[in-house]
Amino acid sequence: MTPSYDNTYTMKERNVLIIGGGPAGMEAAHQLKQLGFNPIIVERNDKLGGHLAQWDRLFPTSETAEGLLERLKENIKDVEVRLNSRITNIEKNAETFHVTLSNNKNFDVDAVVICTGFDLFNAEKKQEYGYGIYDRVITNAELEEYFKTHNDKRIDEPQRIGFVHCVGSRDIKVNNTYCSKVCCATALKQACEIKDEFPDADVYCFYMDLRMFGKGYEDLYLKAQKDFDIKCVRGRVCEVSENIEGKLVIKAEDTLLGTPMKMTLDLLVLMCGMEKSKGADEIQKMLNIESNKDGFIENLGAFVGMNKTKEKGVFVAGACTSPKTLPDTIAEARSTAMEVYHYLCNN
C-alpha cells in the first residue's frame, strides 16, 4: 500500500527549527523547504557553512569547498536564517516546541533538527606531539587555511614533511576510541597538495590503517603514491621533539619492517579527528537527549533509526551523531528531512 497523507493543511505554517547552519543544516533546510515546510536555521556564528567555510579543497575530487558552499547556500536563499543567534531555551509543549533565542526573540516550531556538527580535536591534548609548543607542528585545519591564504610563516620551503594520522581518534588515552572517518583521505589529499607546492620535498604519512573506503578514495591513495610519491609509513608517531635548529625530530616504528625509526622534519601536520561540537551540550540538556559512549548525540539505532532521537519531534542530521564525510552528511540531511515530513504529516 502506498502511504497517503492528507496534505490539505498548509505545510507552510509548520515551522521546523534547524539548529546549526553547516552542510547538514543547510541541506535539511533546503529539502524541508522543497517539501513545503517553513524551516528556520539558527546559527551561532556570523556566517553559514560550519567547517566547510574554513576548508580550501575537498577530497577526493579536489573541487573547491567554496563551490559546494555556494551551491548549498543558493538552495536555501528563501529560507529564514538567523545568524549570530544562540538558543537560550526550548520548551516542549503538547505537540510544539517554544524556542527562545539570545536576542529574546521567540517562536513556536513543530519539529527540531539538531545539526550541530563537530569540533576538531584539540591537538594540545596530545602533548607528546608538541602542538602549541613547537612552531612547526600544525593541524590539518591550519594547513587548509594555508592553502587558502598562502600566509603562514611556519611553512617555509619545507624539505621533509610528515603527516600524523589518527590524532585524537582511535586512542584510549584521549578517550576517543572511534575512527574519525575523514582524516585518512584528508591527509593524502593535503599530502598531494603540499607536494605540488614543494615538489622537492619528501612527504611521509604515518598511518595505522589507511581507511580509503569511499568512492574515489582508493584512486586518491594510488594517485598519492604514483603521481606524488607520498611515502606511507605504517606506524604511529610516538613523540616529537625539537632540535637546536628548530627542526622536529620524530620517532615511530615502521611496523611493516618491525624497526623503530627516527627522522628530522621541517613540518609536521596533525590530522585532528572529530569530536561532538561542545555547543550541542546545552541543546541536549534543553531537549533531554543523551550522548553515546563516544560522546556524540545518541540516535535511535544504527540502521533505520539514525535520523531520530528518543524524544518525539526531535531529529538529528550530520556529524553530531558520529564522524561523517560530506556525502554522508548531505545524504543523511536529506533522509532526515523525509523523516520530519512523515512525522509532521502523521501529526
Binding site: 610519491d229 615502521d254 624497526t259 623503530p260 625509526m261 627516527k262 627522522m263 628530522t264
Partner: peptide, 17 residues
C-alpha cells in the same frame, strides 16, 4: 636499533624509482 632516516642515502633508490 633505530633507523636514523636523516643518515639514509637514498641516491640509488631514487634511480630505481
Amino acid at each position: 636499533s633505530h633507523i636514523q632516516m636523516d643518515d639514509v642515502d637514498l641516491k640509488t633508490f631514487k634511480k630505481l624509482e
